[in-house]
Every structure is written in C-alpha cells, then in structure tokens.
C-alpha cells in the first residue's frame, strides 16, 4: 500500500496574525509554523495504516525551503520519505496540479489530505486532485477502515454521518477523530535525519486566482458578568445592547 499524505505548513493556531505591505501579505515574523491540524490527523491515520498493513507513506508539501522543518517532522512522525515541490503556493489549482503530477508519476493507492488548510481554509485541493486524476475524492472523512481492497469511510454530513464503501485509488480530506495526532518521539526524530527529502521543480501552471488584501476580524469584546440576582439587567443588556432579543 502506497500512501501519499499532503501536508500544509501553517502558522500555529494560537499565532497572532498581522499583515504587511498595505495588508496584502501575511507578516511571518515571529510566527511558529506547524503541520496543518487536519493534515496532522491525516498523517497519523496513514502511519497507523502503514504500521498495521505494511507499505509506505510519502509526505508532500508544495512550498519554499522554509517548509522543510515541517516535512522533517512528518518524517519523524513516521513517513518514509518526503517530497517538496519548490514553489510558493498561492493558488489552490496550482497546488492541486503539482500534487496530481507527482501522483501520476508515482502511482499511489491513496492520497490523504486534511479537510482544509488552517491558514486559507479553502477546502478545495482534494476535490481538484481527485478530478485531475479521475479518482473519487471524499471529505470530510472522520473514519477510514481498510479490508483487502474494500475501504469503509465515515463522512460528516449536516446533522449526521454518512457511511460509504469505496475502493482504491482514492483521495481523502480528513478530520478528527480519524486518528489521534501523533507526537514524534526521540527515536523518530533521529531516524528522520537520514530519511530522503526530495526537492522537485514545479510543473508549469498559472495561478487561477490572485490575492487582494486582508482584514482582521473586529476585536472581541470582553465578557460581562451579571449576578444571578439581577436577571432583569441581563435581559435589558440582551435587548438593548446586544440586540438579540
């Protein structure tokens, strides 16, 4: 079983976000970057499947050299090798084209992704890659079990869960609780030193979108505490200040 796991390199979820160049660009100074949280679940499940059934896991990122520590972490968690497509990813179609190109060349049984990136939250790349490769794609997938050639999936849908049977090859956009995300141990970190990390030039593809500018959401106001004995005051505030009643 050959699994490709596509990981993003995103600011830690607790980061304070600031913009520069007239709010057209993220200011990366002082930010800590991590594997996208959904990608972390996808990677954890892929590694579990490999450990149970054998095979290989390849971690892939479309990004500049700064993303290599993130790929190294994926290797420490249990990927066997890593590929970095050397390009600045600013467009979902561009990214999907790069992933599809590698997948065509290397032939994977399954491509695991996160349900969405946690920086731009597009939720598009898995669908595009599925389309480009002529493979079914599913998202958001909360459970994946493999029995021979049969793949059973549980997908979150409005108000419930959908159970699906599928077969290889396929593309999955994963989310919790598909697996518990993994913390690399020291042995994993040391073994990652010598695992291969290949850098590949992108195939040419124009960006189909271009960014405008960014705006931060309005600052959240603090909590107001109202004593239980003053219920009228709460109703008054909900009516006249919050205007929700």
């Amino acid at each position: 079983m050959k699994i490709l796991v596509c990981i993003t390199h995103v600011p830690d979820t607790t980061s304070k976000i600031a913009f520069m160049n007239s709010d057209t660009e993220l200011n990366k100074a002082g930010l800590t970057f991590v594997i996208g949280p959904y990608d972390d679940y996808a990677l954890a499940r892929a590694v579990e499947i490999k450990e149970a059934q054998g095979g290989t896991v390849t971690a892939l990122n479309v990004g500049l050299a700064e993303t290599e520590p993130t790929l190294r972490k994926a290797l420490a968690i249990g990927a066997d090798d890593a590929i970095r497509i050397d390009a600045d990813p600013t467009d979902a179609y561009f990214v999907a084209t790069q992933i599809a190109d590698i997948a065509r060349k290397n032939g994977y049984d399954a491509i695991f992704m996160g349900r969405e990136s946690s920086d731009y939250n597009g939720g598009q790349v898995h669908g595009m890659v599925g389309e480009m490769l002529g493979m079914p794609s599913f998202s958001p997938v909360m459970k994946v079990e493999i029995e021979g050639t049969k793949v059973t999936l549980a997908r979150e849908i409005e108000g419930g869960k959908e159970y699906i049977e599928a077969s290889f090859p396929l593309v999955l956009g994963c989310q919790e609780p598909i697996a518990e995300w993994k913390i690399p141990n020291m042995r994993g970190i040391m073994s990652a030193r010598t695992k291969p990390l290949q850098v590949i030039a992108p195939v040419s593809q124009e960006n189909l979108t271009s960014g405008g500018h960014y705006e931060l959401p309005p600052a959240r106001s603090g909590c107001k505490f109202i004593d239980a004995s003053e219920a009228e005051k709460l109703i008054d505030l909900l009516k006249n200040e919050a205007k929700v009643l």
């Binding site: 800590t32 520590p69 190294r72 972490k73 420490a76 913390i183 690399p184 141990n185 970190i189 030193r193």
Partner: peptide
C-alpha cells in the same frame, strides 16, 4: 538547530497532552 526545535515542540506537546 531545527532538530532542537522539533525536540522542544514535541516535548511541549507531550507535556501539554
């Protein structure tokens, strides 16, 4: 080094978990 930082991040995650 990047490895030191990965060790630190991993131990921090471990402690938090």
């Amino acid at each position: 080094t990047e490895e030191h930082k990965l060790i630190r991040a991993s131990m921090r995650d471990f402690v938090k978990r």
